[in-house]
Computed example of a mutant assay.
Amino acid sequence: MAQAAPVQKDFKDCRNAWAATLEALAGEDERIVAVVNDSIGSSKLGGFAKAYPDRTVNVGIAEQVMVGVGAGLANGGKVPFVSAAACFLTARALEQIKADVAYSGYNVKLVGQSSGIAYGELGATHHSIEDLAWLRQLGQITVIVPADAWETEQAVRWAARHEGPVFIRVSRMPVPDLDISDRSFQPGRAEIVRAGDDIAVIACGTTVHLAAAAADMLSDEGISARVLNMATVNPLDEAAVSDAAATGAIVTVEEAHVRGGLGGAVAEWTAANHPVRVSRMGFDGFRQTGSIAHLFGAAGLSPEGIAAEARRTIQTG
């Protein structure tokens, strides 16, 4: 079974970009407040708490309360960034996210830390692979899955000035910067990472650089694979999906559940608007306990695995 590539020296922890950006923004806007569930350390908010102790609200291990406090602060004119491990933020406090944030339309910024299977060895209780499927249903929330440190910074900056609820999914798994020139972060707009017209690979978050590497491998075989960084899962860039469908085959890749997440969104749109073969790569059901490399490898989430799935999809499309 193919294994995920080992972490390299030029890979970056996106949590550092998130924390540094929030701290910088707080110096410019006194409305910004951090709300956490006893996760100052894992949220990388030690510097923020030291610089702005009066704007750091630690509710303890009480995620429902945490989201409710965030909604109350937003109702009072603050710009709360509510940060916690994604598995607990989106599962334990889903009712509060639905009623207090999405339904009420409050200006709350939810930040899901250590998302996907980043807590690999802690098992299914700490994996957060269902979060995209859950939050996509709450149409008022913009759902962003940054692919690298640059995009994480841009997403946080955009969220701070955007009026409305936002969910930003931040992984603790280090990733490289994408080699895209003249980048401009636009929510709801996909980035073209690689051009191609034989098949399209649509990825988000920690899998985008793997999809790009897979496209490079396929190129050596004469297969032209388009790679899209679909950082915004809600709203979906339907024009980009339409162009992807025009290649005749699509593979979606995500560090999330294949049912209802990015793969689900793409499959739903193509089924209704441009029927085409869609193969979804990610996780399906509870994952076993194991390292990130093991779990990624078991799901085929590697350049070799993605390239192999692209070949199969072309052949069966």
Rank of each mutant, 00 (worst) to 15 (best):
I144F: 10
D198P: 00
I223M: 07
E28W: 04
K78F: 13
D197K: 14
P176A: 07
L178F: 02
V266S: 04
A214R: 03
G76E: 14
A195C: 11
H162A: 10
M66F: 01
A93K: 02
A293H: 03
L228P: 12
A214E: 02
A118N: 14
S184K: 15
A245M: 14
H209K: 05
D216P: 02
A195D: 15
D220L: 15
R226T: 13
D284I: 05
T270V: 15
A51V: 09
P176L: 10
G76W: 05
R169Q: 04
A256I: 01
G290I: 14
G27Y: 06
G70E: 01
E163C: 08
Q113I: 14
A17D: 10
A93V: 10
L228G: 13
K98I: 11
N37G: 15
P6L: 00
W150R: 14
A214Q: 03
I292T: 12
E95R: 01
A86S: 11
N234Y: 02
A160V: 05
N234C: 02
R31I: 10
A239W: 01
S104T: 06
L178G: 08
S104A: 15
A34T: 11
G46P: 06
H126F: 11
N107C: 11
R287I: 09
V82T: 12
A149N: 04
L236F: 11
D54F: 05
D100G: 02
S302K: 05
P6R: 01
V175M: 12
G116R: 03
H294Y: 07
V108M: 03
R280M: 11
F81R: 03
P187F: 08
F296P: 01
M173F: 10
A293M: 05
R311C: 01
A267P: 11
L135C: 00
G70Y: 08
I250K: 09
A213S: 12
V227W: 03
V175G: 05
A272R: 15
E268S: 06
R15G: 13
D100K: 00
T206Q: 11
I40A: 09
L236C: 11
D182G: 10
E23D: 14
R311P: 00
A307F: 08
G112N: 08
G248Y: 13
I199L: 15
I314V: 04
L132Q: 13
A124G: 01
A225E: 11
T247A: 09
A20F: 02
A244K: 13
L138V: 07
A200V: 08
F48P: 08
Q113D: 02
Q3K: 09
T142K: 12
G116C: 03
Q137R: 07
H274L: 05
E268P: 01
I168N: 07
L236G: 09
G188I: 07
A239N: 06
K109F: 08
P174A: 14
A49W: 02
S42W: 06
L218N: 06
I314F: 06
T207W: 02
A86W: 03
E130V: 08
R169A: 05
T152L: 07
H126D: 05
